[in-house]
């Protein structure tokens, strides 16, 4: 049992971190009333920038490279998401359509530039990915230490800390209240002097930042290079986590951890007595089936922000 936990929990944390980060981005965007199907594309952009920056500057920054790479990927992700904000907030474009375009555009740009810069469809492996570490002091605690703090990626804990920060910002600060108000009833918020357009821009840009961060963490912990197949569905799984977590930062984190568990079980289940007989396919589709069930109301009703997906046009009713 202990051995099983020691092999599962670090894997769960490892698979969940990018999902948690990206899902937080989704929570911010959707809470402000902008549907973000483009999370997948934002992750692609983050993964691309993270890998390219790491390859280009690993000589300059040494062991700091992965950290600086994810910061740069966060910034570029934020800038890239402005396209979605302009289309869906300013030009009243259909937000789902704009999100689909973001996904196509990110993958197109990423692979196009990879081919132009590296002359082939995928980059080399990075020299400076994230490595597992043991956290000093904490890993010496009996039982808990080896399970939670030995051989893990620091990025997993950063993701969890960000989830708590996001909860605090959304539910305990005036900024968060305004952001949620804009997503529930933009006209009422506008009447109270909240700048709807500005809040939605901020929320979408935050989702770009988190998506870029999530994508780069995924690339630098799990795959170590970039190609068209680096991000396949993680963004949509993060979107599922947003909904399964009922548009709440901590709920989304819980959902992402749960989906991470399902993903890692499909990888390590062969070694675990109870699970080795379950076909892998059930674990692979579990997150998606559960999300549909949650939406249908079988696992507590998932209620979207009231104005989610509707462009706000001043003066219209």
């Amino acid at each position: 049992m202990f051995d099983a936990l020691q092999s599962i929990i670090p894997t769960v944390l490892f698979y969940s971190a990018p999902l948690i980060l990206t899902a937080l981005g989704g929570v911010f965007s959707e809470r402000s009333g902008v549907v973000n199907i483009g999370l997948e594309g934002l992750m692609v952009m983050g993964a691309f920038i993270g890998i390219v920056f790491n390859l280009a500057f690993s000589d300059v920054f040494g062991s700091w490279t992965p950290w600086i790479s994810i910061v740069v990927a966060t910034i570029i992700g934020a800038i890239f998401s402005i396209i979605h904000a302009i289309a869906s907030v300013s030009f009243h474009a259909n937000q789902v359509v704009s999100g689909v375009a973001i996904n196509m555009l990110a993958l197109g740009i990423g692979v196009y530039l990879t081919k132009v810069w590296y002359g082939k469809g995928q980059t080399d492996m990075v020299d400076q990915p994230f490595y597992t570490t043991s956290i000093p002091m904490l890993s010496d605690i009996p039982i808990i230490g080896p399970i939670f703090f030995e051989g893990i990626y620091v990025t997993s804990y950063i993701a969890i800390v960000f989830a708590i920060v996001a909860w605090f910002v959304l539910y305990k600060t005036p900024f968060g209240l305004r952001l949620r108000a804009v997503g529930e009833h933009p006209m009422a918020a506008d009447t109270n002097g909240i700048k709807v357009v500005k809040m939605r821009y901020i929320a979408v840009i935050l989702s770009g930042a988190f998506g870029g961060l999530g994508g780069s963490v995924f690339a630098l912990t799990i795959v170590s290079n970039f190609s068209h197949a680096t991000i396949v569905g993680q963004g949509f799984m993060a979107l599922a986590a947003v909904i399964f977590g009922k548009w709440h930062p901590l709920g989304a984190m819980g959902a992402a951890l749960f989906f991470g568990l399902a993903q890692s079980l499909s990888v390590v289940s062969a070694g675990i007595p109870l699970l080795e007989n379950i076909p892998q396919v059930f674990l692979l589709i579990a997150p998606y089936v559960l999300t549909i069930l949650a939406l249908a109301g079988f696992i507590g009703r998932a209620e979207a922000p009231r104005a989610n997906g509707e462009p706000y046009i001043k003066g219209s009713r």
Binding site: I83, I86, A87, F91, H92, A93, N94, V97, S98, V100, A101, I102, M104, L105, L107, G108, I109, V111, Y112, K115, V116
Partner: peptide, 22 residues
Amino acid sequence: VPTELVDIIIALIIFFVASSYM
């Protein structure tokens, strides 16, 4: 020219149609 240029063009066309307001 890498084939992905076409994917970029298609994505841009979607953006422009979706932003037809503009």
